[in-house]
């Protein structure tokens, strides 16, 4: 993996809040093709901001995000934090999924659109969820649906923001296997942010510790054993 070409280069990225404070300070990072890169760090460390900058939702004060050949924002799938979505809204799983289909002006989610969405759900062993309301899903099922939605964009890079938050133990275990499967069988490059160090240790090829600036980068075991990180969580990792 260490010799893999990059999918994405983040160069000297600085992002500032409206009041001028730094959300990210001179962050440089290379994401390798086919790897699972986990971002860890405390709340407010800039993990979601980094993702949003990669997606073009946040403009950096300086620095740049450069996609390698065959990678682009259009081929990047994004699963936001579960808390960012109101699951009490009256949408079915199929409606949520078909909204993810790019390049379609009209949206009714029938016919070919439904078939495409169903195929992605089947890929993730979630076909039985298709006609349920999103409010009826467990945390793990909901993340599965969100990932299926991101896959509808045929991504090469998949960004998962806090995928295990609000997910029970069984759901987290399912997510672990799913994320590894997406890398191994679908050849996806995955960036994820998580506070769940167990999940990170199990799935990540490399871990990046972020606290506005990079405070550690390397193989999971190496970074998670770092004394500086232990200070973040005030416990033995």
């Amino acid at each position: 993996m260490s010799g893999s070409p990059s999918a994405l280069e983040i160069r000297n990225l600085t992002v500032r809040y409206g009041d001028g404070g730094a959300a990210l300070e001179q962050v440089s990072l290379s994401v390798r093709r086919g790897e699972i890169l986990a971002l860890i760090g405390p709340n407010g460390a800039g993990k979601s901001t980094l993702f949003k900058t990669v997606l073009g939702l946040v403009k950096p004060a300086s620095g740049e995000v450069v996609f390698a050949e065959h990678f682009s924002r259009a081929t990047t799938g994004y699963v936001p934090q579960m808390a960012a979505l109101d699951r009490n809204l009256p949408f079915s799983v199929m409606e949520l999924l078909t909204l993810n289909l790019p390049r379609q002006r009209f949206w009714f989610g029938g016919g070919a659109h439904r078939q495409r969405a169903l195929a992605k759900l089947e890929l993730l062993d979630g076909a039985k969820l298709a006609d349920r309301g999103i409010h009826e899903l467990s945390g793990g099922e909901f993340q599965k649906v969100m990932i299926a939605g991101a896959l509808l964009r045929n991504p090469r890079l998949l960004i998962l923001d806090e995928p295990s938050t609000g997910v029970d133990h069984a759901g987290t275990h399912m997510l672990e296997r799913l994320i590894i499967r997406l890398r191994d069988e679908e050849a996806l490059t995955v960036m994820l942010a998580s506070h769940d160090l167990h999940l990170v240790q199990l799935v990540a090829d490399r871990v990046c510790c972020l606290n506005r600036e990079i405070c550690g980068l390397g193989p999971a075991d190496e970074v998670l054993d770092n004394h500086y990180l232990k200070g973040f969580w005030h416990r033995k990792l």
């Binding site: 949003k52 997606l55 073009g56 939702l57 924002r73 990047t76 994004y78 936001p80 960012a84 979505l85 109101d86 809204l89 949408f91 409606e95 949520l96 909204l99 993810n100 790019p102 379609q104 002006r105 009209f106 949206w107």
Partner: peptide, 21 residues
């Protein structure tokens, strides 16, 4: 409303995804 149905629904459900699209 019909012309902008997808954009409106995305804006309600997943504003970030709407912006990405």
């Amino acid at each position: 409303l019909l012309w902008n149905l997808k954009a409106l629904a995305l804006g309600i459900l997943q504003p970030d995804l709407a912006r990405v699209q």
